[in-house]
Write a protein that binds this DNA or RNA. Sequence first.
DNA 1: CCCATGTCCTGGTCGC
DNA 2: TGCGACCAGGACATGG
Length: 271
Amino acid sequence: MPELPEVEVCRLGISPHIINQQVTKVVVRNASLRWPIPESVQKITGQVVQSVERRSKYLLLRFSTGTLLIHLGMSGTIRVIEADIAVAKHDHFDLVFAHGKALRLNDPRRFGAVLWFENHIDEQGLLTKLGPEPLSDDFNYGYLFEKAKNRKVPIKTFLMNNQVVVGVGNIYANEALFKAGILPTVKACDISEKRYDRLTDIIKSVLSAAIKQGGTTLKDFTQADGRPGYFAQSLLVYGRAGQECFTCKTTLLEVRQSNRSSVYCPSCQLP
DNA sequence: CCCATGTCCTGGTCGC
DNA sequence: TGCGACCAGGACATGG
């Protein structure tokens, strides 16, 4: 269930357990994820994890000869466990380490990915077209306003476009627009610079708060140690269609946009 | 049958 | 007409 906060929570959780650790075995139980896990992942055997980075929702494990890219898709989770713990359904991939632990990927829907790149991380073009990281200084005042010029797409769809800004998925797009008081159906080009500046601040604060609380657990997301995230308790509109707005008691409404559900308060959120 | 946290890809439309 | 940018929707697999 990962959006950016969940992936970042995952990165923070697994990093201390696997950095500087040597991989002794690579186990592929089911290679058919979004793309087949390549045979070349076996080349990781014997190598040491140098760093665990994140770009957008991609986890990047750096080794001396290349990078292992992991994406959790819609339903992926990663845990660091004792390597001899029994395999569960949908446990597709393990990195086993010399200290007896294993990084284990579980992904029921198999929309996730495990890829190995030597030298050129972007052989597949997955990272080249991505917009700025929302928590970086590249995502700043004026950016969204400039980017939105002539864009007639609804603001909700605009925010979820990875070429605009990465990491803002359906949950946090809904939450940020509620907090910013912007109707999700407004055209991106019709929003003022001032409102975009406020929205930029809100996106940063919503994502940061979610990371601090360990992400949002809806069904299956867990942190690296198996604990759930607690941000679900902070959700103001996502998943609350038909219920009262916490601010004004108006009934929250739901619309479909680009095949995704948007929940909003018709009173607090304005065109 | 409905719905679901992501995103690549296809095919259509629009403007220059 | 051509080209590129933009945009809507399908597709993927499994579970609740």
